[in-house]
Structure formats: structure tokens, C-alpha cells
């Protein structure tokens, strides 16, 4: 009994430390990689608590390895957009200019019922209000509505460049080519590698944020 109690205290402290190290992302909306780690962590933590015949280290060592892998992979995902896309995928536009993208829905294996439910959870009950809906990589649906229908409000801007790399779906969304973007950057005298974030809307209104070291 005492051993179980002591082990519980140790695992409790270790898990709190783990979530502090892995950061707040683990507590919010989970990306696939974080979901896997969280599922494994919860099971690994319980094993040595349930089986007193198992050394505590058998639970703690895999937790340490998982935390280390999660930290390394998330750092790699921050460095490389390609790797980030490989692990987390791309956001998918499911409603474009008010039109349901059936191919995208099939690709996501999302029924209209699922989509309707997700939209209701976002507080959108009228399909006529929806200009764009995007299925994010964490599974949430983001909605851009045009409640007041004013021309000014009808401009959804999306990222075209993230940390020096082109975002293909953003380019396709706005109908802008890479060449056009590069011409814009040339005008701004900003090399591609110096771009932290470049967003644009369909009217080609750009918003550029340079990396701190290039300011």
C-alpha cells in the first residue's frame, strides 16, 4: 500500500514536470504527434502504479524517451515546414466562397452532417453566412462568415509564406502564383528567407512580417 502511494506521488510529480516541459500546446488543441504522446503517457504512467511488481523505472524511462522525442520533433517541425506538413498535414478548405468542396470532404472522410455539427459548435447556424470554412490540422473547423456582407469584411487573408517556405494551399486559395509573390517581395526588397509571415487575400492585398534579424 505504502509503495503504491509513494509511486503515485512520484508519477504525479513526473507528469506535472512532463507537461511543464512539453509546454502549453499539450494542454490545448492536440496535433497528431501530441495526441500520440499524450495517449502513450497516460498509459505508461498507470502501468507501474497498477503493478507493484514492475520496477518504477520501467514506467519512467519510456516517459523520458517520449518527452525527449516530442521535444525534438516539435523543434524539427518549427525548423522545417516540410516536416511539419508531413506530420501534421495541411489545413483543407471545405467551403470556398460559400460553396461546399465535396472533393475536400471526401478526402477528409467528413460527412456533411459532421461538418454541420462542427459549424454549429462554432456558433454558425446559417450556411448562407459562411464564406470560407477550413479544416485545421488539429481537427477543428475555422469559419469565416460574412454576416454584414460589407465588401470590406469579405476579405479572408491566408498565409502564403511561413518562415521562408511557401504554403501551397494558401497560394491555391488566393489564386496567386509563386512568381507573383516573389515579384512582390522583390519590390519590398525582402528576400524569401527573411519572411516570417506573408498573408494575402483574393484581392492580392499583402501583409508582410519580416523575421526579427532582418528588420
Amino acid at each position: 500500500m505504502l509503495i503504491s502511494a509513494l509511486r503515485t506521488v512520484i508519477i504525479y510529480v513526473v507528469l506535472i514536470a512532463v507537461f511543464r516541459i512539453t509546454g502549453k500546446r499539450q494542454l490545448g488543441e492536440l496535433q497528431p504527434i501530441e495526441l500520440v504522446v499524450t495517449l502513450l503517457l497516460s498509459d505508461l504512467a498507470v502501468l507501474p502504479l497498477q503493478e507493484s511488481g514492475m520496477p518504477l523505472l520501467s514506467g519512467l524511462v519510456p516517459i523520458a524517451v517520449l518527452v525527449a522525442l516530442e521535444l525534438l520533433l516539435s523543434a524539427w517541425m518549427m525548423k522545417s515546414n516540410g516536416f511539419s506538413r508531413l506530420i501534421s498535414g495541411n489545413p483543407v478548405v471545405v467551403i470556398h466562397e460559400g460553396k461546399l468542396q465535396q472533393k475536400a470532404l471526401r478526402q477528409l472522410r467528413l460527412t456533411v452532417e459532421d461538418l454541420t455539427e462542427a459549424l454549429r459548435q462554432q456558433g454558425v447556424f446559417d450556411w448562407q453566412e459562411i464564406e470560407y470554412a477550413i479544416a485545421e490540422t488539429n481537427g477543428k473547423i475555422s469559419v469565416f462568415t460574412v454576416a454584414d456582407k460589407s465588401e470590406e469584411k469579405r476579405k479572408a487573408s491566408v498565409p502564403l509564406i511561413n518562415d521562408g517556405s511557401f504554403i501551397t494551399w494558401g497560394l491555391e486559395f488566393c489564386g496567386i502564383t509563386k512568381q507573383e509573390v516573389l515579384t512582390f517581395l522583390k519590390k519590398k526588397k525582402c528576400p524569401l528567407r527573411a519572411v516570417l509571415l506573408l498573408t494575402a487575400d483574393k484581392q492580392r492585398r499583402y501583409s508582410l512580417t519580416k523575421k526579427e534579424e532582418h528588420l
Partner: peptide
Amino acid sequence: MKRVGVAVVLLLAVSIGCF
């Protein structure tokens, strides 16, 4: 970078511990 350092230290500690 601090977290990458933590990860490297953890992996090193586990490797040394296993050895």
C-alpha cells in the same frame, strides 16, 4: 533551444542509464 537541450539531456541520461 532550451527545450531541445532538455530533450538531448534526457536522451543522454536514458542512454547512459540503459548502458
